[in-house]
Amino acid sequence: MNIIVFGQIADITGTNSLTLENIGDTNQLVEQLTSAYPALSTAKYAIAVDKKIIKENTALNNNNTIALLPPFSGG
């Protein structure tokens, strides 16, 4: 699955896009990303699965595109 990250989340991961395989759901994805990038644990972001913002744990397959969107304060 393709994971696209925005704003300061990309500063943490060092890239705009990551590829991971065989992750069951969004909770597991967050867990895996946080252990790879500990700074994510204090970051705030919304999660989108296939361009739909989700609020509950959501099942994933390798064809999904997941986006992590942090809030922006600038104006």
């Binding site: 925005f6 969107l69 809030p71 922006f72 304060s73 104006g75």
Partner: peptide, 10 residues
């Protein structure tokens, strides 16, 4: 609503 950060906007 609009918001920006560095090179990105919403």
């Amino acid at each position: 609503y609009g918001a920006i950060s560095k090179f990105e906007g919403q």
